[in-house]
Nucleic acid binder design. Structure first.
Lengths: 217, 217
DNA sequence: AGGCGTCTCGAACGTTCGTTCGACAAATGT
DNA sequence: ACATTTGTCGAACGAACGTTCGAGACGCCT
């Protein structure tokens, strides 16, 4: 009498566990390089048992990408509510993106790295979310650009370069060593808006020290 | 008597053809997703015949990554000769990178996308070149940063963000539609140094057209 | 002519792949 | 009590995988 909706709640949690674990396997070995047996081993679910939760391997990847991307986009929409100042909206875009990147590195790596791995039943759906996400970012940028833009800056290139900075982080960011989400967001937003050079009109001939920390990795 | 070096010159050209074609296949299907039979079909060389030119599939990927990366690094070193002004050196770094990206999209995609696909006999060698390349970029950046840096900018993050902007281009750049190498380089360098906002001290409500501040370029 | 590297390939090797099948236990509905 | 749904799995399927082998064709030296 209490349960009017016949959703098997036990199963939903297990699906989430499979999605999380499969993301880790895909992140490590790549989609094509990871086998169903790898995922079976990592999740503890038998090889045949996996197919109760999705139709095939591609569908599993689609489930990961779709839920991840949908969450990121919806989370951003929530954060943007009631915020109308363009610079703050940009900051929230970057913060939302980076925060999810650092808290769910496997899912985000699969999302970034396995963009083209999906066939056309599933691929188009993920592409649709990506287009909405890009359009939202483009809107935010355009409202910033409305107050003036540096010369030689194409809006499309600017936005895609911003995504380049953000999406590249999964290749180098080491938790505990590199800055956390807040600091990384401030750095990227600052770089995007003002560049690395100080904004003062006369930057030449300043002999400051302290930029010798070598960390090639 | 004339030939002291027993290099089979006929074979070298064919190896290059295999490397070029295999790059295309790897770029389209990914390293793990591409089969030796795919490469055999694309190159016109029989399946067994391929193994005359390399030991195994990983070695083939290594050959592609090593020659590509070595060429890019050496090409940059050549361009940097005799140029000592830090901003111009930065511009040459970006130009060299972007030019090769747009003229050899397959090879560069394989280089960027298949970073971790190489096992440890080969993987370490490519990593070594990458470290040298990063160190060179870091040097260039540090000499620019010596004249002052915007607040909240970590050198490591700045350089890696620059690589993020550059390496992300293969995901979106469409030849003929998007700007060519020269224009793209100018956009990225401008964004990296000064950001997207106009550099004047009063960014709000300025209806000026071009910039007039003393900026030698 | 004959021997020898260089180059090429069809055919096959053993392994691993994604996916399916049928059986079965436990919960659920009636 | 029984029928049905939900969840799980061992075993097997054919296909595709990376790699090897032995044989043969070609050009070059003596």
């Amino acid at each position: 009498m209490v349960s009017s909706i016949p959703i098997p709640r036990d199963s939903e949690a297990k699906l989430q566990h499979i999605l999380r674990t499969a993301s880790q396997v895909f992140a490590q070995r790549g989609f094509a390089g990871a086998s169903m047996r790898d995922i079976s081993r990592a999740t503890g679910v038998s090889l045949a048992g996996l197919y109760y939760y999705f139709e095939n391997k591609q569908h599993l990847l689609y489930l990961i990408q779709n839920t991840t991307f949908t969450f990121v986009l919806e989370s951003l929409r929530l954060r943007l509510r009631g915020v109308h100042e363009p610079p703050e909206r940009l900051r929230l875009l970057v913060l939302n993106h980076i925060e999810y990147f650092l808290s769910h590195p496997n899912e985000m790596k699969v999302l970034s790295h396995e963009e083209d791995a999906l066939g056309d039943p599933y691929g188009e759906k993920v592409q649709a979310i990506k287009r909405r996400y890009y359009a939202l970012a483009r809107e935010i940028f355009d409202s910033i650009a409305a107050e003036g833009l540096a010369p030689q800056i194409h809006p499309r290139i600017a936005v895609l370069s911003l995504f380049g900075m953000m999406n590249w982080t999964y290749k180098w960011h080491k938790p505990g060593v590199d800055p956390d989400a807040a600091e990384l967001t401030a750095a990227i937003v600052g770089l995007f808006l003002h560049g690395v050079l100080p904004s003062g009109p006369e930057p030449k001939h300043m002999f400051r020290e302290g930029i010798t920390a070598g960390d090639p990795r």
